[in-house]
Design a protein around this nucleic acid. Sequence first.
DNA 1: CTTTACGTTGACGTTAACGTCAAGCAAAGG
DNA 2: CCTTTGCTTGACGTTAACGTCAACGTAAAG
Lengths: 129, 129
Amino acid sequence: MTSPTWTIREIADEFGVTTRTIRHYEDIGLISPERQGTVRIFHRRDRTRLSLILRGKRLGFPLDEIATIINLYDAPRGRRSQLEYVLSQIDERREDLVQRRRDIDDALSELDTFEQRCRTDLDARPDAG
Amino acid sequence: MTSPTWTIREIADEFGVTTRTIRHYEDIGLISPERQGTVRIFHRRDRTRLSLILRGKRLGFPLDEIATIINLYDAPRGRRSQLEYVLSQIDERREDLVQRRRDIDDALSELDTFEQRCRTDLDARPDAG
DNA sequence: CTTTACGTTGACGTTAACGTCAAGCAAAGG
DNA sequence: CCTTTGCTTGACGTTAACGTCAACGTAAAG
């Protein structure tokens, strides 16, 4: 039994992007799918990386930041200094994400109070227009 | 007593952006500061909008989405249909933000488990190199 | 009265993240 | 064998969000 593989089209359709996008991600080194001759073959690890990339995009990160983030997970951690560097990078990432979550929570609570105001206005206006 | 005002440079410095950025935001209608002759005068409401814009940017929203968001707060809510439209928009926004927060939480917990792995590696290596 | 400092409006340049062709190879079906 | 289908690599186009001049107005300072 062999591990499953996918074509570029299957991957693109499944992840809701174009093949051009996937090729672009390979161009800038975000993924490096296997080749059979000239044709790209995608394995599970490529899918994993793509999920990480797309989540990064949903969060609004630029692709080069996304690269440093997901490369962090694959970075060599043999020497102590390397490990400590990785740990410091983790802290930076975490600070960034926590700040974003604060921003989101702020925006959400503003939305809540604004919705309250709208609903009050709506209750004060039970007619048709 | 009169309400305080600011120049474009004061605003730019305080918010950590360039004057070009602020002018750009005016070009695309995100802010519309007062004019005294040709010179821009910034009031408190301009600062409020700028905070909203910059938070939107930290969250990775494009400027045109940011426009629809903050214009939502100023949208006319006179008629019932308008109010209901605004309320539906609020729901959409909230869904988006909640999804982003999910993504952030996922990323954060991945960071946590990854940090654990790193710390385990570090403990297993109490030497200097 | 002329610098100096700060403001203004064009207008072209730049980077990121792809879109959109064109031209060609390669396997598979009729 | 020919056509269709799907993949490939260029290479140029596009949009967003400004950067970066240039050329000009103006008000205060020496």
